[in-house]
Every structure is written in structure tokens, then in C-alpha cells.
Write a protein that binds this DNA or RNA. Sequence first.
DNA 1: CGACCTCTTGAATGAACTCAACAAAAGTGG
DNA 2: CCACTTTTGTTGAGTTCATTCAAGAGGTCG
Lengths: 210, 210
Amino acid sequence: MVRLEKLVNSTKPIRAGEIVYRQGSQFDKIYAIKSGSLKSVAVDESGDEKIIGFHLPGELLGIEGVYPEEYPASTIALETVVMCEMDYTGLTKLCTEIPSLQNQVFRLLSRDINLSQAEHSKSVDQTAEQKLANFLNNLSARYEARGFSQTEFPLTMTRQDIARYLGMAPETVSRLLKRFKEQNVIEINRGTISLSDTQALEDIVVCAVR
Amino acid sequence: MVRLEKLVNSTKPIRAGEIVYRQGSQFDKIYAIKSGSLKSVAVDESGDEKIIGFHLPGELLGIEGVYPEEYPASTIALETVVMCEMDYTGLTKLCTEIPSLQNQVFRLLSRDINLSQAEHSKSVDQTAEQKLANFLNNLSARYEARGFSQTEFPLTMTRQDIARYLGMAPETVSRLLKRFKEQNVIEINRGTISLSDTQALEDIVVCAVR
DNA sequence: CGACCTCTTGAATGAACTCAACAAAAGTGG
DNA sequence: CCACTTTTGTTGAGTTCATTCAAGAGGTCG
């Protein structure tokens, strides 16, 4: 543990809009988010920007860069962010000495594969309404897993970001959020969302009818 | 290398429709496909079956099970399949002794994350036509990477499987394949597909117009 | 040869998109 | 602190793509 902590440095605050690492740049560090949230954005071969995902306080970041030793997406702060950074080479060296740490890293990577595949297979075949409800539930679960409220949390990304992440038009996000508000499923005040009826949200995800 | 090979066994042939491992069963082995192809299927919380993906000759299988130590999906042979199996615990032990092997496994896992995320962010925001063209290109690239022809390969999965994997109706797959045939982009004879105009296929993926 | 399954084709419906205009909020500079 | 600009969010109307439902064609196997 002590030796692990020696690998870790705290960064100074990163302001909204600043880039932590760029797509294609040399992979060297992984990060843990102390506070604030970020988005990952990648330009694909057809030249348009895709939103790969969002990153919340307490989560790890950058591990996707292990292979092929470059970050596959750029990561941008959505608000002021403070992080810890850790040298990856140092981590792998330590892993060979501490088998339990090695296994931990294996599990971490495997979990990311499963999360990513689960999202993929879910999002296919869902209506826009289901995708958005699922997105909100997903944020809620992730905030809860890190000790924050699961019913009230900041919605730091723009409608446009959400839309591009979920593969829909920003107008559709706007209309659906309005519908959720009308049905008293959620409330939104100045960047903070409250899930007033989490059961309803989950019902929407699995079936779309109520 | 010799020690690695000691961990590996060859399986007897598995017939079409047979299950290699079941969703939720204890994770213990990873597999390499010597010949034949398979599909991964998972039942999600809403109770319906999702097609997670397809597995081609030469590819690895089962590594997604590392965390949480159970296979997240069932894997079913689409035709007669022969595989190698390898004990995972033995592999991790060997990794602690051979740092280069550890790094290789890290890379393998990381690559899977990136492949899965790339597919995800692609499939979002694409028309059915683009998704299908991309799917065919993907199969082509994977066959090529393993030394097979990139322009002619077996299409072992049913239209239904393809449809559910891509999140569309089987009728749509049928109609689109017909359109591709009419445009002389592909040919299909008794389970074998030929990509007659790979450039056209790639053009469809990036833009949908020609 | 008939039964079954997969695949194909057609017509009508509907969900989400585009385009366009407007409203609200957040920055910016005097 | 207020006017101004810019960005972000909302709302409406018409269009499009993929779906659903239904029916028929083709292949496979007992």
C-alpha cells in the first residue's frame, strides 16, 4: 500500500473545458477523479466527433490507453476537476511483485470490458426514451457507488453532449426531459437533477410502458 | 513458452448449437478458437436475449469472465467448432513470474475495452445501412487479421442473429442485403458471402451516400 | 413428400429526425 | 452593473427511415 501510494500524485485543479489528455497521445498515466466530472471525446475515421463517455468523481480514467499505448480519446473537464495521477509503468512493475495487485488490475480491466459491452447491447434496440432513462439510472448508480446521493446529482454535461453520447438529436433529449418532468419522474434546477420517481425510471428502461 | 503450452488443452469438436459455457457459470478457463465460429448471448434483467457478439477462428474467448469471476454471456457454436482451453488461474500465476506475459494480458484486456467502446460509439448514430455495412467490414477485417480471405468468408449466423446483434428487424437485414446485392457490393451463395466492392462498403459506412 | 424454419417482399404505421424560429442562460467588455 | 454577444436549450411542423404485420418463397430434414 505504501509503495502504491508513492506512485500517486495529486494534480492541481483543472478548469472546465481543459483537456487532461489528447486522443492519440502517448499513454503513460492513469487517473483517479477526486472531484468534478469529465467527458471523453474521439474523432473517428469519418472525421466526426463521438462522445465516448462521461467520468464521475471517484472513478478511474485512462486505463483504456494500455493498448496500443496511446489514449483512444481526448478527455475534457466539464467543470473544475481535481485528480490523482499514477505512472502506469510503475504500476505494472509493482504488479509483478504483488500478485494480488496484478489480479486487481486484471479485474479492473475485465470489469470495464463488461460494463462497456453491457451498455452496448442494451443501447441497441432501445427507444430514445429508454436510452435516456437508462442513462439517468446509470449516472444515479455510479454516484451512489461512490457514496453520493443517487436521487440528486449534478448534470454537468450539456444536452448536446448527452444527445451525441446516446446517438439522438439534442431536440429529442430536450423533449424527453420535458416529458419526464411532466410525468413527475424527474426535476431539474440549475444543473442539478432530482430523480423523484426512480421506480418509474426503471420501468421505462425495461418496457417503455407504465 | 513451453510452460505456457502446458496450460493449454485442445477440446474435442463442438457441434452447432452446443453451449461452450453458460452465462453466470463459474469463470475458470479462457479459449482460443481453432476452427468454426460462435455467438455470445446474454439474458438481461428485462428478460430478453441479447446477442453480445460473434467469435471467429483464431480469436480468444472467455476473458470477459475475469471479473466478477463468472461468464457474463452464454457462448454457442454456430457450426462445428474446435478450440483450445487454458486454465486462467495457471495463467495469472505464470504472469507474476514472467512480466512480459503479464503485460501481454494487460494489453489483450485493454484492446478488448477499446474494440468494444469503438463499436459502441460507432453504432450509435448510424443508419441501419451503415451498421450492416460496418458489420460486414468488421467480419472481413477480422478474417483477414487471422489469415483468411477478407473478400470471401462464411456467414454462419442467421439474419435473425445479425438483426438482434445490430438492433434492427430481421426484415431490414434482408432488405439491405438485397440492396447491397443489387448494387453489386456483395454476393451471397449458400452461406458464403463475397465482398465484390469493398470500397463501396466502406463508403457506405462513413457516409451512406455514394 | 410434407412440415418446419428461415428468408424475402409488400404496405401501412410511427418514432425520431431535420429545419427553423425563438427563449433563456452564460459569458464578455465597457 | 448593465447592455451585448454567444451559447445552450426549447418548441413546432413536416419528412424520413425503419418497424410492424402479413403473406409468400425457398431451403432442409425427418
